[in-house]
């Protein structure tokens, strides 16, 4: 009777491909994948799950045939490093500390859009036009970053309006103690391209906030002078003069995701 020769190297590689596939599948099923990538990238991760599964099966078949690498390669260990980190740390979103290394978007007015040009402006225009002065304009995720950018670019549109948003406290150098940027992280493809999107807010209690504390602030928009901490240039931005704070409130989604295109 002919004995089947099993190749340990190929068997190990098939197992690693299978482990990657299962890890990605778990992220997709639990939606934790959104802690790492933009929702539109999910289809590509599904492709990788299926691809790795198929490659794992084909490699396992080769292992049984004994025609593929005899011994496991040292490099296989590299593929176990990310999996080990993922399992040990569990799924996590980027922390507020990630904002410290990055340039704050609202501090550079008018430099970026968050969705297809034209469409965003029309949406913002219609939102602003339809809201009565006394109505609270809540920063919904769909247009949060566009509105934050617009507050820096056209502060007069927000003067006297009631505004409400959720974010974490983020300070930039030179900011007075009673002011913070209420900030969210925005990702375009994956967490590696995360950018902090901040809205300037002011109230006496801000002085006691630690960076990274989540909250909802509600207040009235006011045009105010602002010195860019990175360039030293002066400009006017819209700031929320806060009269209500809900400490600890966090958004339903870990990040803001710009419009899908």
């Amino acid at each position: 009777m002919k004995r089947t020769r099993i190749s340990p190297g190929a068997a190990a590689w098939a197992a690693i491909l299978l482990a990657w596939s299962l890890w990605m599948l778990r992220l997709l099923v639990s939606e934790d994948v959104l802690l790492y990538v933009h929702p539109r990238m999910r289809v590509f991760v599904w492709f990788a799950v299926l691809g790795f599964l198929v490659l794992s099966a084909v490699t396992a078949r080769s292992a049984l045939g004994g025609t593929v690498g005899r011994a496991p390669r040292a490099g296989y260990a590299l593929f176990l490093v990310p999996l080990t980190l993922a399992v040990a740390g569990g799924p996590r979103a980027l922390g507020a500390g990630a904002a410290e290394n990055r340039l704050l978007r609202a501090a550079a007015p008018g430099t970026a859009q968050s969705a297809a040009p034209g469409r965003t402006e029309r949406t913002l225009d219609s939102i602003l036009a339809s809201a009565d002065p006394g109505t609270v304009l809540s920063f919904e995720d769909d247009f949060h970053s566009a509105m934050a950018a617009d507050m820096a670019a056209a502060p007069e549109r927000y003067e006297g309006r009631r505004l409400s948003l959720v974010g974490f406290a983020h300070r930039v150098p030179g900011l007075p103690a009673d002011r913070v940027f209420v900030t969210r992280l925005l990702i375009t493809c994956c967490a590696a391209d995360a950018e902090p999107v901040g809205v300037l807010a002011s109230w006496p209690g801000a002085a006691g906030l630690r960076g990274g504390e989540w909250m909802r602030v509600t207040g009235t928009g006011k045009r105010t002078a602002y010195r860019n901490p990175y360039t030293g240039k002066d400009s006017f931005v819209a700031m929320v003069e806060v009269d209500e704070v809900v400490p600890g409130e966090q958004p339903a989604s870990a990040y803001l995701y710009p419009g899908q295109f």
């Binding site: 639990s30 934790d32 959104l34 569990g90 799924p91 979103a93 909250m215 704070v245 400490p247």
Partner: peptide, 21 residues
């Protein structure tokens, strides 16, 4: 100036709101 009691909602993804040491 009002300070309301926090309504905590975790971000999407189990465990994402955990603080790391």
């Amino acid at each position: 100036m009002r300070e309301a009691v926090g309504r905590r909602r975790p971000p999407s993804g189990a465990g994402s709101s955990r603080r790391s040491e």
